[in-house]
Amino acid sequence: MTSAEAPVPEPAQVPPAYARRLNVVAALVPLASGVVAAIMSVNLGIGTLPAPGPGMWPLIVSVAMVVAAAVLVLQSRPRGDEERFTKDVVVVAIAAASLVAYAFLFELVGFEVPTVALLVLWLKGLGRESWRLTAVVSIVATAALYLLFITALGVSLPHIIAL
C-alpha cells in the first residue's frame, strides 16, 4: 500500500551557494535597516543611563540587530531552511498586488465589488478553476462575508447594498 505516500514532494534541494547568497541578502536588509534606525535613534536623543532619552532603547535594539545581522553575513552557511525562488513568485506578487488594490478600493466603492473581483482573480486567474465554480463561489462567499461581518457581527463596513 503506497496509497497515502506523502503527496507533497520534498522541496528540491537548494544548492549551497544559492542558499548562502540568500542568507547574505537576507542579513544585509536588516543590517541596513538597523543602521538607519540607529541613526534615527541618535537623533531622537539618547539621554543618559539614569535618565534615558526616547532614543536610547531603540538605539540598543538597533545595535543588537546590526550585530546579529553582521554575524549572519559572516556565518552565511546554509541551514537547510532556505528555499529557492521559482517562477511561482509571480503568483505571489500578483496576489499581493491584488490585495493592495483591494485595500485601495475598499472605502472608495464599498466592499462588495472588490470582494467579488478579488475572488474572481484568485479563483480563475491564479487557481484556474472553472468559470462556473468561480461564479458560484464568488457570489456565495461575498454574501456570506456580508452576513458574517455586517449582519451578524454588526460591523460598519463600507457597503453599497443595504439590507
Partner: peptide, 13 residues
Amino acid sequence: AILAPLTILVTMI
C-alpha cells in the same frame, strides 16, 4: 485555490 481567497478575505476585512 478556493480556500486561499476565502481565508485572505476574512483576514483583510
